[in-house]
Design a protein around this nucleic acid. Structure first.
Lengths: 198, 198
DNA sequence: GTCTATATCTGGATAGAC
DNA sequence: GTCTATCCAGATATAGAC
């Protein structure tokens, strides 16, 4: 809450992002043009674009804001906390839709979402992997598990499930993630089991 | 190879799809308008649209054609064969890009890709799951594995990895899928291992 | 900082001739 | 079946006034 125009600008920006978040959540991605967004925010198209250079940059900012709120809401032990975020996201399909569209668009290195996605993958897997290593050190997790690979899989699986869930909501994303983790994290080291089943 | 205008129309359609496949593979999705496509095919825009009602329907037809050729090229035991398809797809990023865009767009039930995706999920998981059950009956796979869930996970993981790989080609999709399968398919039934690690 | 107005303009879809 | 020509819609981005 700084004073002066600089602080106010930032504050206004956050207000706009909040409104955009709500609008996309309610209307979905495809139904949302910057005109719609501007109206929902109570601003003109030009006024909106004053804060974010382009539609795509605005969308990326919205995703960043969601990540922020997801992270703030996360708590508890590592794998469960991440599953919890997915469960939480499932209440807001519009934002998942936005994410999948941005993820597809981010294949182009010049797209504003490209850097965002790279950063998200890096931070996400680093955090997840670190949490797993701590579990290993505490003896709560099999030491032979490749934590980096597991983290990469988790995010790919979560993203893939989300994309599919939008099309076919019959699947239970959180349950599948839990099921995956339960089975995948089982101890498979040589000491813990015979080489062959009897 | 039927005779008459009907057969010829179908044949022409296939030619067009082949050309479209190559063009998208080479240029990527975003760079491909129907005008570009028409040019590559050696047809006018109107002529192209005579065969496919709209851009989206054409794209879906392209995906169907790729599936067809993937399936024709697949061979060998179930999980490995599917990984092989992913490995093969990795040589054609443009088509993966097309797929991820269509997957995102398919969230809208009115989009032509919606039905395609639903069908693909259904056929894919059915086939994968059936193959796993056969392995179980042959005693090659732990009987306690939920084959439907495993199949759903496989496709979600593969799709998620592909979307990420487009943005960050440093990951090895096929290796991660194999690693997943190897660990996930391990026998975890009570007979095969002690309850707790020593 | 915000609005109005406008510049483009890309691109998909259509109509009708040949 | 294929082409030409055109239309039209929708959307973004920009310029300049207040």
């Amino acid at each position: 809450m700084k004073r002066g125009p600089y602080g106010k600008g930032i504050e206004r920006r956050e207000q706009i992002l909040d409104a955009a978040l709500r609008t996309i959540a309610a209307r979905g991605y495809s139904a949302t043009s910057i005109a719609e967004l501007a109206e929902a925010v109570g601003l003109s198209q030009g006024g909106l674009l004053h804060y974010f250079g382009s539609k795509e940059e605005l969308f990326v900012a919205v995703l960043r804001k969601r990540d922020q709120s997801d992270l703030a809401a996360a708590h508890g032990p590592a794998p469960a906390a991440f599953v919890e975020i997915v469960r939480r996201n499932a209440t807001v399909p519009g934002l998942i839709e936005l994410f999948t569209h941005m993820q597809a668009a981010a294949a182009d290195p010049r797209h504003p979402a490209h850097h965002y996605m790279l950063e998200r993958y890096r931070l996400g897997t680093e955090g997840f992997s670190r949490a797993l290593r701590e579990m290993q050190e505490a003896g709560e997790l099999s030491a032979d598990l490749d934590t980096d690979a597991a983290a990469t899989m988790f995010f790919a699986l979560a993203d893939g499930l989300q994309a599919r869930w939008l099309i076919d909501p019959s699947i239970d994303m959180a349950a599948l993630l839990e099921q995956w983790w339960q089975r995948y994290s089982e101890d498979t080291s040589i000491n813990s089991r015979p080489a062959k089943r009897i």
